[in-house]
Design a protein around this nucleic acid. Structure first.
Length: 889
RNA sequence: GCCCGGAUGGUGAAAUCGGUAGACACAAGGGACUUAAAAUCCCUCGGCCUAUGGCCAUGCGGGUUCGAUUCCCGCUCCGGGCACCA
């Protein structure tokens, strides 16, 4: 054994050994419990960043720990290889997206191997390879035939200068990122996955995922957004005298030409129906179009509504604008006319594209009514409040919000007033009663709705999985037959504005599989979320050329531990859950959910820096190229200041990813892994700083030295029983407490930082433990063996060398996890905290089995307590066993 | 704007079920060793005061409790997501 720690020698040695002996190759074995440990696969952006190191180290620690616990472990790796950045890089560097992607994969694979991860590389996959995406196309055609995929119009961001569709990320302040042109909304046909058909199950199954973080389940529940409400129809014509619903009996025209006889809205607050003072429709609503005919002002307003991006955050934060259409609809109960407004905040894609507005009881409606001078009519008061208070003449039917109505808008549930026969009922009662009456009138009914929308997967981009559909002028949309799959994406292309396959007749010209006539292939590609929705299953059988999945998938699935960034809490994780159910329902898997346990790692964030180019565009500068001089951030290259954009998650688009390579080159993979795990608990977000790396490296050197010195003095049998000198006995108690704590920290709490801290404490105690007698040395041997094994999932390379030195012939990856010896944990005496009125005043040593009365008496008699009682009698004495005594005076 | 998180010394953090606030580290300061440097080892290290003691202190303001970093209510700031970044 070398006297000094040389990671540059032992790390490549260990990695070469693991690779040559195929140590981490996973083989199905029904005789052993399996543990499928999966970290979210990376997008091959070019280089690893610290977020990857964190993600894959966490996964590796858990995989190696479970291997030591006797599980048959699978830890695979692959590449989420399709996506937008490859096209951007292709334009910037004049290369093909495929070549750029494969080069990045090669480089990043090398970086991952350099981290020493216990991965079964034989299962590696890349989503941009035809042997992967052909099965995605295969499943697509099945789902298309089952009606779970359909085509409809959808709104996208349109750059009128470049004539391209833009991703939300490519819209900056309402303008296209390249052209700078004002972005417009445009409707185009797209394919949709009918995820709403699974909304109920996706919601209900969240209650059966105890291994998922509560916050992720909450986010998904809110995203699915099941709500119970009422669909209400506002007749377009007043109901005739004597009752009956307006519009009934009128002839329905062809949809799209004749306006409907009622305006439908959906509301969760039907109880506020008597407070409606206007209804608002989306700019694309047929009523709005009808009103705009011959009304240039309204036409101009509707056109204005078309500007801007489709991103919900933009829609929600933009200024609320509206215009009166001049049309009215009639209140289903009072038959009063209600004005119809067009409003930019109402979206055609949600519900019916129309909302009833109750300014008195809704924040947004209230702001809108104030802005445009619309009436505010209060109809709900807090429960338990005297009705007279809200029924003052001043406040009832207040034409506007005013100092007289300071409580408005009142958005809580309550009791109705000024609501006809419904007055006096609670909100909940009124909703049921109103729904019943509306149903009898034929003007509405109770409805359950979901916020979740169907998943549009068409992308007008090149670098993605081709949608396997052929458009035939006579047969319509025909799925590509199995024997013609895969539809291969041509890789040797040149990229400029727009997708090259849309200009490639050799790609899109084809024969209709049904009638044989000339037809055209779909040139849109799929959303890259589709690939990442089922890769976890394909890892079970990546080599199967004849089927998407086979029985091996049911051996490994569900994933026992999934690890990835919290930023994926909703979209990716929901789509993957949905896909699992799709695959179940076509008979590919037997489980209901893909991921039994989920660990959402906090993001590694870093400062962003930029300079503005002449045209106002931001050029993002990597933090590695920036230094601080006299408190000012400057570019190292030219010493000139750069602008600070705040800390954000490491990403390619903000160029703030910190490459771990320099760290690994300088200190080795073990130091990088140890530091990353020690810096913070995994779920917490972490602002990157390498302050402290030195400390992690110092600990490994100390560990090496401790083992070296012990081995130099001669290795012995680890302690196996017998008398111990008191210091060795106390130390051994700490050792077994530490084993219990570290096991719990890794397995249950997944708090690697405290596990490492406990081992550091133990090592500090070991250094201080004196005595060269045989008994003490056997305890030291026991402790060093345990420490090295406990650290081996975190820092495997150094531990592999150290365990060989401590136990010649030992194999690290084959060694079992150390077990805590219960008998070593026993204590004779314990220390209790003494409090007077909740303040710490002293400490008390008592025997471990002391009775409550004995403890109480000892506490009251202690000088510290006496001093603070100042002769007053004790009102109460609280004894918390094993912890403290609190005397209340 | 809506949904979900977070905030503790100079810094990263710990306190696991309401019971010793600051474990373990980093940085800093002091010392030992050395011709010197590096490395290593030892000590100090939340603030204040009338200092062997005491008071204050876990983003801010309230509340519950014998006792609150932890629970409740109301804020502020920071991060993530918002359906075409992945």
């Amino acid at each position: 054994m070398d006297a000094h720690y040389h990671p540059e020698i032992i790390e490549p040695e260990a990695q070469q050994h693991w690779e040559e002996k195929q140590i981490f190759r996973a083989v199905e074995d029904p005789a052993r419990p399996k543990y499928y440990c999966l970290s979210m696969f990376p997008y091959p952006s070019g280089k690893l960043h610290m977020g990857h190191v964190r993600n894959y180290t966490i996964g590796d620690v858990l995989a190696r720990y479970h291997r030591m616990k006797g599980f048959n472990v699978l830890q695979p790796m692959g590449w989420d290889a399709f996506g937008l950045p490859a096209e951007n890089a292709a334009i910037a560097n004049d290369v093909a997206p495929a070549g750029w992607t494969y080069a990045n994969i090669d480089y990043m694979r090398g970086q991952l191997k350099r981290l020493g991860l216990a991965i079964d590389w034989s299962r590696e996959l890349a989503t941009c390879k035809p042997d992967y995406y052909r099965w995605e196309q295969w499943l697509f055609t099945r789902l298309f035939e089952k009606g779970l995929i359909y085509k409809k119009m959808a709104t996208v961001n349109w750059d009128p200068a470049d004539c391209t569709v833009l991703a939300n990320e490519q819209v900056i302040d309402g303008r296209g990122w390249r052209s700078g042109a004002l972005v417009e909304k445009r409707d185009i046909p797209m394919y949709f996955f009918r995820i709403t058909a699974y909304a109920e199950e996706l919601l209900a199954e969240l209650d059966h995922l105890p291994g998922w973080p509560e916050r992720v389940k909450t986010m998904q529940r809110n995203w699915i957004g099941k709500s119970f409400g009422v669909e209400i129809h506002f007749p377009l014509l007043p109901s005739p005298p004597g009752g009956g619903a307006g519009g009934e009996g009128r002839q329905q025209g062809e949809p799209g030409f004749e306006p409907p006889s009622v305006l439908k809205v959906f509301t969760t607050r039907a109880d506020t129906l008597f407070g409606v003072t206007y209804v608002a429709v989306a700019a694309e609503h047929p009523l709005a179009r009808q009103a705009a005919e011959g009304n240039p002002e309204l036409t101009a307003f509707i056109d204005e509504c078309k500007q801007g991006s489709v991103a919900e955050a933009d829609l929600a934060t933009m200024e609320k604008k509206g215009m009166d259409t001049g049309l009215v609809v009639y209140h289903p109960f009072t038959n009063e006319p209600v004005p119809v407004w067009v409003a930019n905040y109402v979206l055609m894609g949600y519900g019916e594209g129309a909302v009833m507005a109750v300014p008195a009881h809704d924040e947004r409606d209230f702001a809108f009514a104030e802005k445009y001078g619309l009436p505010v009519r209060a109809v709900i008061r807090p429960e338990g409040e005297a009705s007279g208070v809200r029924r003052d003449a001043d406040e009832r039917d207040a034409p506007h919000a005013s100092p007289l109505t300071p409580h408005l808008p009142y958005i809580e549930h309550g009791v109705l007033f000024d609501s006809g026969d419904f007055s006096g009922r609670t909100s909940a009662e009124a909703i049921d009663a109103m729904a019943l009456v509306l149903k009898n009138l034929g003007l509405g009914e109770k409805r359950t709705t979901f916020r979740l929308r169907d998943w549009g997967i068409s992308r007008q981009r090149y670098w993605g999985c081709p949608i396997p559909i052929i458009h035939c002028p006579t047969c319509g949309d025909v799925p590509v037959p199995d024997e013609q799959l895969p539809v291969v994406l041509p890789e040797d292309v040149k990229i400029d504005v727009g997708s090259p396959i849309k200009k490639m007749p050799a790609f899109y010209q084809c024969a209709c599989p049904k009638c044989g006539g000339p037809a055209e292939r779909e040139t849109d590609t799929m959303d890259t979320f589709v690939e990442s929705s089922w890769y976890y299953a394909r890892y079970a059988c990546p080599d199967n050329a004849g089927a998407m999945l086979d029985e091996r998938a049911n051996y490994w699935l569900p994933v026992d531990q999934y690890i990835g960034g919290i930023e994926h809490a909703i979209l990716h994780l929901l789509y993957a859950r949905f896909f699992h159910k799709l695959m179940r329902d076509v008979g590919l898997v037997t489980s209901n959910e893909p991921f039994a346990n989920l660990l959402t790692q906090g993001m590694v964030i870093a400062d962003t820096y930029f300079r503005e180019a002449g045209d106002g565009k931001k050029q993002w500068i990597n933090p590695a190229d920036v230094e601080t001089k006299d408190g000012v951030a400057v570019l190292k290259a030219d010493g000139q200041p750069v602008r600070v954009g705040g800390a954000e998650k490491m990403s390619k688009s903000k160029n703030n990813g910190v490459d771990p390579q320099a760290l690994i080159d300088q200190y080795g993979a073990d130091t990088a892994r140890l530091f990353m795990m020690f810096a913070a608990p995994p779920e917490q977000s972490l602002e990157w700083s390498d302050a402290g790396v030195e400390g992690a490296n110092r600990f490994l050197r100390r560990l090496w030295k401790a083992v070296y010195e012990h081995v130099q003095a001669g290795i012995v049998q680890a302690y196996a029983g017998g008398e111990l000198p008191p210091p060795a006995r106390d130390f051994r108690r700490q050792l077994h407490q530490t084993i219990a704590k570290v096991s719990d920290d890794i397995e249950r709490r997944k708090q690697f930082n405290t596990a490492i801290a406990a081992i550091m404490e133990l090592m500090n105690a070991l250094t201080k433990l004196e005595g060269a007698d045989a008994a003490t040395r056997s305890v030291k041997q026991e402790a060093l063996e345990a420490v090295v094994l406990m650290l081996s999932p975190i820092v495997p390379h150094i531990c592999r060398t150290l365990i060989k030195a401590l136990k010649p012939g030992a194999c690290m990856v084959g060694s079992p996890w150390p077990a805590a010896d219960e008998s070593a944990l026993a204590r004779d005496e314990i220390e209790l905290m003494l409090q007077v009125n909740g303040k710490l005043r002293g400490k008390l040593r008592v025997s471990a089995d002391a009775a409550r009365e004995v403890i109480e008496a000892a506490a009251l008699a202690s000088p510290e307590v006496q001093k603070f009682m100042q002769g007053k009698p004790a009102k109460k004495v609280v004894v918390v066993p094993g912890r403290l005594v609190n005397v209340v005076v």
